[in-house]
Structures are given as C-alpha cells and as structure tokens.
Amino acid sequence: MPQAHEFNQSVPALAAARDALRASLRQQPHLPGAVLELCRLRLAQLHHSAADLATTEYALPESRRGALGHWDSSSLFGAAERACLAFAEVYAMDAAALTDEHADAVKSHYGDAGLVALIEALGIFDGAIRVNLLWGEGDDR
C-alpha cells in the first residue's frame, strides 16, 4: 500500500514524467503563475486537503492566500483571477456544469490558449490532490 510520500519511489520513472509535465505547465506563457497557484489552492480548499494547502508552488502574499476562501467578496482579487477561480470552482464539482459564460470570462482575459492552459492545469492539480487524499492522511474534515 503506497503512502503519498512513497509514490515517487514506487514508480520513479512515471513520477518523473508527471513532474516534468507539471513543470512545463509552470513554463507556459498563457496564464500567470499566480493565477495557477490561486486555482490550485482553491481546489485544495474545496477538497479539504490540508497537505496540498500546506504546500507552496508559487509565492503569493499571505493576505491573498488567507482571503481565498471568500475570493468572490474580497477586493484582493482582480477580474481575471475571479474568472479563473469561478471556472475552477465549477470544474471541481462537475466539468459538465461549466457554461459558455464561464469559458468566455476566462478567454476575455487570457484568450483561447489561456482557457486551454487553465483546463489542463485544473486537471493536473485536481488529480494530484485526489491521489494525495487517496493515499495520504485523508481529508481534513
């Protein structure tokens, strides 16, 4: 039974390929790293994954991390970030529930490539969080 921290040892080549994919996501120019990190952290919040919330992949001001749970009423997040966070929240529940309006809001800031990068990132982040929950300490509820 693998524990979350043992994954890299159990399947080192596959884990390295996964890490390379994740690294490439950080290198794409279509979405800022801060937006990716906000979406990753929001997914971690929605999944109640303390382990993922405790990690930092892109440095954000502590005030913004702290306000993420109520991003929709906080002045710390701009329109582009709000569009992506709204998209991420619906994605986390049901990708089929996403509307053209959700997509258009993201594209109005980041274009088609930005939308694709966001969707790709959400898949990678959500997958990593769920796998951590499966084999880690479970959720924090």
Partner: peptide
C-alpha cells in the same frame, strides 16, 4: 494551443 506542455 499550449505547445509548451504538449511534449511532456
């Protein structure tokens, strides 16, 4: 559209 991630 995101060629930076495609190969990986």
């Amino acid at each position: 559209l995101v060629p930076e991630t495609l190969a990986s």
